[in-house]
Simulated scan of single mutants.
Amino acid sequence: MDGRGDTSSPKDAPTIEPDDTVDQRLGETVRLLRQRAGFSIQDVANKTGLSTGMISQLERARAMPSIRTLRLLSIALDVPISYFFETSDPADVQRYIVRKNSRRLLRLTASGVVKEALTPADKGQLELYELTLNPGASSGTDFLQHTGEKAGYILSGSLRLWLDNQAHVLEAGDSFRFPSTVPHMFDNPTQHVARAIWVTTLRQTDSPSV
Rank of each mutant, 00 (worst) to 15 (best):
F186Q: 00
S175Y: 15
S158D: 10
Q191S: 09
A151Q: 02
M185T: 05
D187I: 05
R203W: 12
S180M: 07
G157F: 02
I154L: 09
P183Q: 03
A172D: 05
P183E: 07
A172Y: 06
L170H: 09
D164F: 07
S156H: 11
K150V: 10
Q166S: 06
F178N: 06
D187E: 14
S175M: 14
V182A: 01
H146N: 06
R195W: 14
G157A: 04
Q166F: 09
M185F: 08
N165W: 12
R177P: 06
P183I: 08
R195K: 15
L170Y: 10
W198D: 04
A167D: 08
L202N: 03
K150M: 13
M185P: 02
P183A: 08
Q145E: 15
H192A: 13
G173Q: 06
T147G: 12
R195C: 09
G152D: 10
G173C: 06
H184C: 03
Q166G: 03
P179R: 11
A167Y: 03
E149G: 00
D187H: 07
W198F: 15
P189E: 09
A151M: 01
P189A: 07
L161G: 04
Q166P: 02
E171V: 01
L161C: 06
N165A: 07
T147S: 14
V193I: 15
N165C: 02
H168Y: 15
Y153S: 04
V193Q: 03
L144I: 14
N165H: 13
S158E: 15
T205N: 12
Q204W: 11
K150P: 01
S180L: 09
T181H: 10
L155C: 08
L161M: 15
V182S: 05
W198R: 03
T200F: 10
S158P: 02
L170R: 02
R177V: 11
P189K: 08
I197K: 01
P179L: 13
F178T: 11
W198T: 05
F178A: 03
D164I: 04
N165L: 05
P179H: 13
R203F: 12
W162N: 07
R177I: 12
P183D: 10
S175V: 06
T200K: 00
S158F: 14
F178W: 14
W198A: 01
S158W: 11
L155T: 09
S175Q: 01
T147E: 15
R203C: 13
A167S: 07
Y153E: 02
